[in-house]
């Protein structure tokens, strides 16, 4: 088990390294941030002075090493635009994104998992067909479109819900449905296919042959096995939602990380973009590690392996 965790951590570090190099190079391909951030009509010397101040006059390898060294010491750099440490900005925005992502995860769970279960247990029935339509709709209809339609109906016409911003539970409803929508559909599909596969297995046949009550066969023997892939997807979904709810956050003026990233990209705020992406990468890695450990908890084949 310890060895398993050490191995996973090692792989995680490698993926973070690749991610950091990639994002470092990509932001630098978007252009010169100085022209974006300096006042119009600034003199060439002033621009050079800014470049020197931000370290952009040095070679890429030197810049990367500085960036990497700082990340290791927990310093994600300082935003050009805000003149504040990126991690401060990130953690300022995190609660808003986390709130939205958790609400969206909750919505995707209460729709996706039961619907997937029913579809699988009543395969090819009207229930299953309804589930298929929901899944198709969920995957085909983009969340931002759904968001706009909801704003139109519930805010503009009916006036029931606030259009934007963060506040009480009413503010949370539309953005979390818009964000969780796609993930509900993907969870539905995965739960269904995973359950169907498990239900065909010999051990489910044997569970029935033992004369166990139907709910024990489905909810205990089958569901626990079917949950393994669903759990991975749910964990990854959560991280993706926290860090990449960009469009939804912009539409609903939600003051989260997605919108921070969006601003950073538009202003060529290199440290901000790099920092947010690396922070997201670290979170994905941590969540994956947590999921692996959870797996081990569910699955004795992993838990008891040397």
């Amino acid at each position: 088990m310890t060895q398993f965790i050490i191995r996973r951590t090692f792989y995680a570090l490698i993926s973070l390294f690749i991610l950091s190099v990639t994002i470092f190079a990509i932001v630098r391909l978007t252009g010169d941030p100085v022209t974006m951030l300096a006042e119009p009509g600034a003199r060439a010397e002033d621009l050079d002075r800014l470049r020197a101040e931000w370290g952009l006059d040095r070679s890429w390898p030197v810049q990367y090493l500085t960036f990497a060294k700082n990340v290791f010491t927990g310093d994600l750099g300082k935003s050009f635009n805000y003149q504040m440490p990126v991690s401060t900005l990130y953690f300022q925005r995190l609660p808003a994104s986390l709130q939205l992502a958790l609400a969206a995860t909750f919505i995707s769970f209460i729709i996706g998992i039961p619907a997937g279960l029913i579809s699988a247990v009543k395969v090819n029935s009207a229930w299953d067909n309804a589930g298929k339509v929901v899944a198709l709709f969920g995957l085909a209809v983009p969340g931002f479109w759904l968001g706009l339609v909801m704003i139109l109906i519930f805010s503009v016409w009916l006036g029931w819900l606030p259009t934007s911003g963060q506040g009480g539970i009413l503010h949370l409803i539309m953005p979390s449905v818009a964000l969780g929508w796609y993930f509900a559909a993907s969870l539905l599909r995965l739960t269904r296919s995973s359950m169907l596969e498990v239900m065909r297995s010999e051990y489910i046949k044997l569970a029935r042959l033992k004369g166990l009550p139907g709910y024990v066969v489905i909810a205990v023997h089958a569901f626990k096995n079917a949950l393994i892939p669903v759990l991975t997807l749910a964990g990854i979904n959560l991280v993706v939602m926290i860090n990449a709810g960009v469009i939804i956050e912009v539409i609903f003026a939600w003051p989260g990380i997605g919108r921070l990233l969006y601003e950073g990209i538009f202003q060529r705020d290199f440290p901000l973009v790099q920092g947010v992406v690396i922070q997201a990468g670290i979170m994905i890695v941590l969540i994956n590690l947590t999921i692996d450990i959870l797996y081990a908890y569910i699955d004795p084949r992993i838990r008891l392996a040397k």
């Binding site: 051990y203 569970a207 166990l212």
Partner: peptide, 22 residues
């Protein structure tokens, strides 16, 4: 259900696949 496992039991072909791994 009260007959299966109680009165009539079955042994399937594949021993590994017949047992729930979890």
């Amino acid at each position: 259900r009260h007959i299966r496992g109680a009165q009539i039991a079955m042994i399937l072909q594949d021993p590994m696949a017949s047992l729930n791994p979890l």
